[in-house]
Design a protein around this nucleic acid. Structure first.
Lengths: 257, 257
DNA sequence: CAGTGGTCTAGACCACATG
DNA sequence: ATGTGGTCTAGACCACTGG
């Protein structure tokens, strides 16, 4: 078990689902649990009682309870892990991401610190699709970097970056030093570079993405794709990221502030 | 009944949900129906058989069938209307929207024509929030324009635009002529204007949005907010739109093509 | 009125992860 | 071996929409 802070016994009792109420029971349960999350009774990372127990405590069927739980999962408030349990995963705030700005500039003050988890850096041959995106010959080598951004212990962003391998012979060593792609660019003699195109689309999290972001697979997400060029108009980076739908807002063309 | 093209009787039979298969039954049903939509057997706008009949035909419980249907609704392929029926609503393609470009430039060639449905134009006092967004005094009057963009008969975008009323005394008459906001700006002596800020966030469709877009309420959507300024840096438009998550891709900073 | 989708119950078996 | 969430069944009543 990851962590199972004690949940007050009576937390889930005491609800009245009178037939008087015109709101469906599952919605009342949803709202009640959401309230417990937002007022801090259920902290991020804590585990809920098992569905069977919880349903019994609430006096409803497991199916009715699951209706509520599924909505909360879609909205990114809960994560279910088969054979393990259901956990609270509420990002305490919404990120505001400004296009083209370094990640850390985007983060307003939050209660929890932002950390970066580098999952791997490796070299591999480019797929034909990726080669086209990087404007390099098919089959040429690329550097593939995957990172995770966390708010406290909660992952909020997975990001895959791809670089033409021949431009950065010492990528791994340079990156290991500072953990910063910008610094690698500088060290490679690329002082000026800019984001030339950003694409945002929507979808539903794959098993892989869900695993990284600790979401239930199928949860709606943003997909972000962008291309960076150096000062000479050559593509030096393709980035491909995934955010939970409910935890980010993108801002484009925002002036100073 | 809106329109109920005949659906071949055997369309839904013949599926084998062997326990051999490792994929859940509801997923197989989902994929099967999606296949029928994509290969044109189920045309956009056509009605499905009732859940009871369909479940019987497929040899599963209604609940199992509903599991499949709910996913298809989330993905924007189906719409359920209580007391009426379930209808196919698949946009035949994904829109690519470039920031700051007029809407019609964004639409690549599609099989169906794009049309615009102006729902209303009216004047009303600004809420404090809206006044701040338009940089006008609280309580000042605004013009509120709501439009719907349709692909064939399928709505794909709802859009609310707000303008400071005192800048456009003849808005209604001018707009009625050409149905174009750009033309109204020109007629008002505003030759140059530009989009200064665009925000994109995600959410779940409200009852209102779902009604306009013919989605099942709760379906994931994009929310788009943007501000336009005239050549003198004065705000002349605030726009607020809603897209189904799966039918659009946003492009920012894209160069010519 | 009849038919639709929305909600709910009371069971059951399974695959999975953990100890 | 135990407990978890994931799937599935066979019923039922309701609110809503349309003719």
């Amino acid at each position: 078990m990851l962590q199972t802070p004690e949940i007050p016994i009576a937390t889930f009792e005491g609800l009245v689902f009178g037939p008087r109420s015109d709101m469906p029971i599952w919605q009342q349960i949803r709202d009640h649990i959401l309230g417990l999350i937002e007022n801090g009774t259920l902290r991020s990372g804590s585990q809920l009682p098992g569905e069977t127990h919880l349903a019994a405590r609430l006096g409803v069927t497991r199916i009715t309870l699951r209706q509520a739980l599924q909505h909360l999962q879609n909205e990114g408030h809960l994560t279910a892990r088969k054979g393990v349990g259901i956990f609270v995963r509420s990002p305490p705030a919404i990120f505001t991401v400004r296009d083209g700005h370094p990640f850390h500039e985007n983060i307003e003050t939050h209660s929890e610190p932002i950390t970066t988890d580098t999952r791997f850096v490796r070299r591999e041959p480019a797929s034909t699709q990726l080669a086209a995106r990087l404007r390099i010959p098919g089959g040429a080598n690329i550097i593939h970097l995957r990172r995770l951004r966390l708010l406290g212990e909660q992952p909020v962003y997975v990001n895959d970056k791809y670089f033409p391998a021949d431009r950065f012979p010492d990528f791994e060593a340079l990156y290991a030093e500072r953990q910063s792609v910008t610094d690698v660019f500088r060290a490679a003699g690329i002082a000026a570079f800019r984001r030339v195109e950003t694409r945002i689309s929507g979808g539903f999290s794959s098993a892989d993405e869900a695993d990284n972001l600790r979401l239930t697979p199928g949860t709606p997400v943003f997909h972000l794709n962008a291309r960076n060029e150096d000062g000479n108009g050559r593509t030096i980076e393709w980035t491909s990221g995934c955010w939970p739908l409910t935890s980010v807002e993108f801002v484009f063309g925002a002036p100073e502030k």
